[in-house]
């Protein structure tokens, strides 16, 4: 009997998948995603060096969200990554990165000038549809006249034309920082899911909350009503997350 169409596809799948070649060396310390095709190993090492410098300079670890897939090995252990989700089984989690040992003569901490919302201008360049979600592409510009330090993760919100919060995002537990010169531009993606509330006032936009205040992005249009579809019960909670500001 001839194999069915699904069996033929699976035979082909098996034949092609068997062409995969295992890398010679097992990964341990530095991982460069092949998806970042423009990132050379040298570039990755420069990034690693910059991150190590940032950790030393600010006296605390930098969030993994900024590493773009690069694992920074501390000196004490061969490799430590922040897992993107829970461990698959009840295994002990990796030890936290050791904090700097206090010395009797602490070195002076550099003063950080955080970017104030008044110096930041955000705008949504486009909305992208995804299954059950809407993703805003957002551009942030330092429209102030001074250098400042930007928190790369903020608390995102979906807001309506009156500034009312439609979906409130989580406070970031940690955030890396980046220097943000006047005129500099950073971009991010904000993914919102499951809005089951009442019809909001146009235009819908996103906002970013930090300790210094809130920056509301200019919407795509004055009448924009982009909302993620309701996938739950009426008035069930939605969710919103942001990717770190980059570059």
């Amino acid at each position: 009997m001839d194999p069915s169409r699904s069996d033929r596809i699976l035979q082909d799948w098996d034949a092609v998948a068997s062409q995969a070649r295992r890398p010679v060396d097992p990964p341990r310390a530095v991982v460069v995603r092949s998806g970042l095709s423009g990132t050379s190993l040298a570039g990755a090492l420069v990034l690693v060096a910059a991150l190590v410098f940032a950790v030393v300079w600010f006296g605390r670890p930098v969030s993994d969200d900024q590493t773009g897939g690069i694992v920074v090995p501390p000196s004490a252990t061969p490799a430590v990554t922040s897992p993107p989700s829970d461990s698959p089984t009840a295994q002990p989690t990796p030890p936290p990165t050791p904090s700097p040992t206090p010395t009797s003569q602490p070195s002076p901490t550099p003063r950080i000038t955080w970017c104030a919302p008044a110096d930041l201008t955000a705008r949504i360049t486009m909305w992208e549809g995804a299954a059950g979600s809407r993703i805003a592409h957002v551009e942030l510009t330092n429209t102030g006249s001074k250098d400042c330090t930007l928190r790369t993760l903020m608390k995102p919100q979906l807001v309506d034309g009156r500034g009312s919060v439609l979906i409130d995002g989580p406070e970031p537990r940690t955030s890396a920082e980046k220097a943000f010169a006047p005129g500099a531009v950073a971009t991010t993606l904000v993914q919102a899911s499951n809005y089951c509330g009442p019809a909001p006032v146009a235009p819908v936009s996103v906002a970013f909350v930090v300790a210094e205040g809130r920056t509301v992005a200019t919407p795509v249009s004055p009448t924009d009503m982009t909302l993620p579809p309701c996938n739950g019960a009426p008035n069930s909670a939605g969710s919103i997350e942001m990717h770190p500001w980059a570059p």
Partner: peptide, 14 residues
């Protein structure tokens, strides 16, 4: 390929 690599990095860490 990326995922396989990352899964083994995670195994190494654990």
């Amino acid at each position: 390929e990326d995922l396989a690599q990352e899964a083994f990095v995670r195994l190494w860490n654990h």
